[in-house]
Amino acid sequence: MSGFGTPAHLRRDRLSDKIAKDIQDRVLSGELTVGDRLPSERDLMAHYGVGRPAVREALLWLNKTGMLSVSNGDRTRVTEPDPRDMLQLLSGAAKMLVARAEGIRQFQKTRIFVEVALAREAARLATDDDIADLEAVLLRNESCADDIPAFSATDDAFHHRIALIAEDPLLDALYHVVLELLEEQRRTSLSHPESLGKAQAAHRRIFEAIRDHDADRAEAAMRDHLETVIHTYWGIREQASSSP
């Protein structure tokens, strides 16, 4: 095949892994670039001297990593990896971690690191449009004082709008993955009768610090907010475990 040189020797075991690595190496070396089409499955089978299952398994794995786009009716293409797809590959192991108390604590700490950094960046970088959008989301959140599902949705929107100000796709993806893993923590914390009021007051302090471009104050407000959520969660867990 033109432009697709002879492959290195492939052992008969784990052929799909070898094929995936060969294609990956071609992408990383620049031989294949974003938008390039790969040969058809039939041509790849002939090229590597393997059956269809090995080729399909290799392509599907590279599709899962975000390196390739595999679709019915069109040739496989090299794509620009999405940071969210890359982090989702870790979600299986991460879910095992959050099944244990220590794993939850680790991800709570990670969330603080990520969101504190995002709050600082937001205070530094926020434009007038960013501030107007963030205030609009905050006002929607403040209008949900007695509606936990609506509060949860607007809470997500508030934190996500802060994340968007940094314009960092990897941080944004990490924020979403960690938030998803801590969903049970968030639901539990919101069940406390004082949680919504405390969270709304914290959101207001975070917003005002970002509006005033005060990075130190934004960092402190976000840290205090998340530490309060964590404290509430473990307090509820401890109370539940000690109840008869």
Rank of each mutant, 00 (worst) to 15 (best):
R100G: 05
R187E: 11
R42M: 12
G103Y: 01
R223P: 04
P81Y: 02
T65E: 08
L226A: 09
I230Q: 14
D13K: 09
I165E: 09
V78Y: 07
S71V: 08
E57R: 14
L171R: 09
R77Q: 12
V34E: 15
P83Y: 07
A8V: 07
Q200T: 08
R105Q: 13
D168T: 09
L182H: 08
D156Q: 09
R205K: 10
S40F: 12
S242C: 02
E184K: 09
A145Q: 10
I148F: 00
R75K: 15
S29E: 07
F113T: 04
E183P: 01
I112N: 01
S71I: 06
L97R: 07
T232P: 02
S91F: 08
A136E: 08
D74K: 12
F207Y: 15
S71W: 02
E208T: 00
A209L: 01
A215D: 05
R140S: 10
R42C: 07
F4I: 08
F107G: 06
D25N: 14
E219F: 04
G51P: 02
K64G: 13
A202I: 00
I206A: 01
M45W: 11
N63A: 14
D17M: 09
E184G: 07
A136F: 07
H225A: 07
E102T: 04
S143I: 04
S152L: 06
R187T: 03
K21I: 04
Q185M: 15
A58M: 09
P169Y: 10
